[in-house]
Simulated assay, not measured.
Amino acid sequence: YEGDSVSETTLEITTTQKPVETTTPKTTEAPAETRLKPVKYDDMEPYIPTVEDKPIVTNLGNFTKTIYIRMNDGGYDKDGTPVLYFVADGNPKALFVIANAVTGEILREFELEHSTGAWEVFVHSSKDVYISGHGKPYFYVYNHEEDKIENIGTLPAGSSLGQVMCEGENGIVYSGSTDSLTYWGYDPNKNELFAMPQLIDNATRHMATVYDPIDKKLYVSVLSKDSKNLLFRVDPVTLEKTDITPAEYIDAKKYNFYDMDLYGDVLVIRYPSTAEMILYDIRKNELIGFQKENSDTLEKVIITNCRQPAADPEDSTKFYTVISGKLVLFDTVTRTYS
C-alpha cells in the first residue's frame, strides 16, 4: 500500500510454504508541535452535536439495578414447584420475578407497568400475590391461576408506598403506608381499594399490619411526625381502636415497631436498625420474655439479624428465626427457644 501511511509491513509467502518473513513496522513520529498533550478533565470541551449528525440509537432493553428481597414471599407454582416471589427495581419498569426456591433459577418475569420498584410482596390465601409498587405508587396482583399481572390502581390515602400487609376476614388485604395520615386496604371480592380511618392526627408512616384470626382484630404500628411510636388494636368492622403501646417503647428515636408477625398469642416485633426483637402477648397486653432451652434467664429483648421469622408449617404457635448465624425455633406456648 502506498500513500500517507506512517508504517509498513512486508510479507513474502511462497508455494513451498517457506516461513513468513516480516519486517519490524517502521513508524514516523509526529512533529512535536502536533502531538497531543494531556488535558485535565476540567479543561475538556464536550462535543456539541449538530443538525448534520446522524446518531445511532440502540434499544438495550429494561435497565435493572437492584433486587429487593426485603419482603419477598414464598409459594408454589401450578406444578408444585416451590417458588420465591420478589421485585427487581428497573427503569422504565420494575420486574416482578418468580424464581425456583430450590435451584435459584429465574422461571418468569413480568413488568410492573406503572412502577420502578416495589416494597411489599404478599402471598394471599388464594395463591394470588399482591405487590405494592413505588415510583408511581400503584397496586398490582399476580393472578396465580392465569399466570399474569393485573393492574388494580393507585395506592389510596396519598400513600407513596405500601408496607407490611396482612389478610383479614373474607380475604380482605390490609397494608401499612408511607407519607400518609392513614393505612389502607383492598377488597378482592369487590376489586376496591379503600382508606382506613386515621388512628392519630399527625401520622407519617404505618409500618406494619397484622391480623388476629381468633379475635378478628387488626394490629397496626404507627410513627408520628413528632417521633412517637404507637401500636393500635383495631376492630376492622366497628373501627373501634385501642392504644396498646408499651410505655418503654413510645420513643421512636430509640425503637420502631417496624416488622410485625403473629404466632399464637405472641406478636413478634422487630426493628432492623437495632436488630432487637421484642415479644408482646396480645391477650394479656404485656411484653413477655422467652427462655433459651436449658437456661433460667428470661430474655425480653433478643438480637436477630433476620428480618422476617418463618412459621412452623405444622404448628402456627411456633416460628423460626436466626440468632448468631444459627436457625432457632421459638415456641410461643412454652415461651422457650432452641
Results as ranks from 00 to 15, higher is better:
Y41A: 15
Y41D: 13
D42Q: 11
D42L: 11
D42W: 00
D43P: 06
M44P: 10
E45Y: 03
P46C: 09
P46N: 12
Y47D: 04
I48Y: 04
P49A: 15
D53E: 11
K54R: 13
K54S: 12
I56M: 03
I56R: 08
V57G: 05
T58E: 13
T58H: 07
N59P: 09
N59E: 10
N59T: 00
L60Y: 04
T66M: 07
T66H: 07
T66E: 14
T66P: 05
I67L: 09
I69P: 03
N72F: 04
N72T: 05
D73C: 15
G75H: 04
Y76F: 08
Y76A: 07
G80D: 02
G80P: 01
G80K: 00
G80R: 02
T81E: 13
T81Q: 14
T81S: 09
P82E: 07
P82Y: 06
V83T: 02
L84V: 15
Y85A: 10
Y85D: 13
F86H: 14
F86N: 15
F86L: 13
V87S: 01
A88Q: 14
D89H: 06
D89A: 10
G90H: 00
G90F: 02
G90I: 01
G90R: 02
N91Q: 09
K93A: 07
A94I: 02
L95Y: 02
L95N: 12
F96I: 05
F96Q: 04
F96N: 12
V97P: 01
I98C: 03
A99D: 11
N100F: 01
N100V: 13
A101T: 07
G104H: 01
G104S: 08
I106N: 08
F110E: 14
F110S: 11
F110D: 10
E111L: 05
E111D: 07
E113F: 02
E113Q: 04
S115K: 05
S115A: 09
S115E: 01
T116Y: 00
T116K: 12
G117N: 13
G117L: 01
A118T: 03
A118E: 05
